[in-house]
Write a protein that binds this DNA or RNA. Structure first.
Length: 139
RNA sequence: GAAGCAGAUCACCUUAUCGCUUUCCGCAAUAGCGGGAGGAGGAAAGUCCGGACACCUUAGUGCGGUAUAGCGGGUAACACCCGUCGUCCUGCGAAAGCAGGAUAGGACAAGUGCAACAGAAAGUAUGUACAGGUUAAGCUGUAGUGAAACCAGGUAAACUCUAUGCGGUGAAACGUCAUGUAAAUCAGCGUCUGAGGGCUGCACGCCCGAGCUGAAGGGUAGGCGGUUAGAGCUUCCGGGUAACCGGGAGUCGAGAUAAAUGAUAAGGGUCUUUCCUUUGGGAAGAAACAGAAUCCGGCUUAUGGCCUGCUUUUUUU
RNA sequence: GGCCUCGUAGUUCAAUGGAUAGAAUAGAAGUUUCCUAAACUUUAGAUGCAAGUUCGAUUCUUGCCGAGGCUA
């Protein structure tokens, strides 16, 4: 079962390959129209339960407002930090899940955070998301 | 030592772990996995000029529009660069001149316009006072106003004229493959008596030519090429005052697309301030401006060090 | 990525290169009123920034800064 094997690896590893990135413009616009959101300052998660291609559990993207960070260097910096902490913490979501989601992380703050701060808020946000999901499942 | 100006140069480094991305090799039916090699800048920025390249009839004529403006050279080209002349400013000097800097620097003797306040008068120029002068006369000089007033006056980053250049649109160009619907409905115009189109503001000319426009509605918004070896970089020789040119040798240095080049840890180097100090150093902190998006040549703006030269000033010998 | 447009009082707009940049509205103070509103009087407030052309710049030119739009 090679497919299962790769599945298992993706579950456990901290990799963040291309097909797990949210890229489709149509998906993103649907995400904003139909999806719901959670906020743990300075992060906001916009999410939507939706079938995805390529048998992926989650497609995630990150974004930063151009109004908050004027320079491209700073925007790239924040996006890289967000990707990094999502990469570290995404295995929490993948555990015993059958639903597929589209994620978009939005940075709301006005200052560039440290990696440690970013990790902390990402952890809190994902815990909040998991709690909400389980609650919904139980109903 | 400090300040200013000009020029040149670098843009923290090493190792480990976890990741992203391009490419090559191997394995794998695909997905993917393993290994090797590579992965931001001097401004990548602003998009201000000039090209390459692509398409639009190889792009015609006139008007319009627009850009440039001493002279000579460089260049693929330029609003760029080099040299030089003139003008202006600063410093030195008795002066001649010297040094540095700035310079959109054609034409008002083609025409039109404009000139507040002051002043007699700002354009068909010529009044007052004094002096001179005449047959007579603003005929001559001085005074006062103003940025400008014996003069074919000033002003063209005023219209304009002259000379020269410019066809348009920009990689969301363009080519190609795939997916999918509706060759459907209603209204108007037209089918050689020519609708409409040919991505130029207008007119003419030329070419294509059976569909075109509107309403309401439906579908795709994905992949590949273009896309990185080039007016390239390094070095040597020769020519030229210089910008730059010619020749030889060597070399390959990103290619993403909701957009890669990152995170953590340790060590080292640099700088600054504070504290301790046995003057050897130790501890803490900081590290600028900024991120390729078709590619080049410039310009402009942002910005941290280090080096060289010149000028000014201070201190010591 | 490319192509355009616009910056004047707190706000909405004027001003031919020429005395002190004008008007409406909002603000402040006062008059009136038992109080408020309305009305009247007075008052403060601006050319996005920096150079250049000019005797003189909101206006002309250039460079920055900011805001907005269009583009399969």
């Amino acid at each position: 079962m090679p497919r299962f094997n790769s599945y298992f690896c993706a579950d456990m590893s901290q990799r963040f390959p291309r097909h797990e990135k949210l890229k489709s413009a149509t998906l993103i616009s649907r995400l904003f129209e139909e999806g719901s959101h959670l906020t743990v300052f300075p992060l906001r998660l916009q999410y939507l339960e939706i079938p995805l291609p390529n048998e992926v559990l989650v497609q995630a993207g990150v974004t930063v407002s151009k109004r908050k960070f004027k320079n491209a260097v700073d925007r790239n910096r924040v996006k890289r930090l967000m990707r990094e902490s999502y990469r570290k913490h995404k295995s929490l979501i993948f555990n015993n899940s059958e639903q597929t989601f589209a994620f978009l992380f939005i940075y709301l703050g006005k200052e560039i955070p440290s990696q440690a701060d970013m990790d902390r808020s990402m952890r809190l946000l994902i815990d909040k998301f998991l709690a909400k999901r389980d609650e919904k499942d139980n109903e």
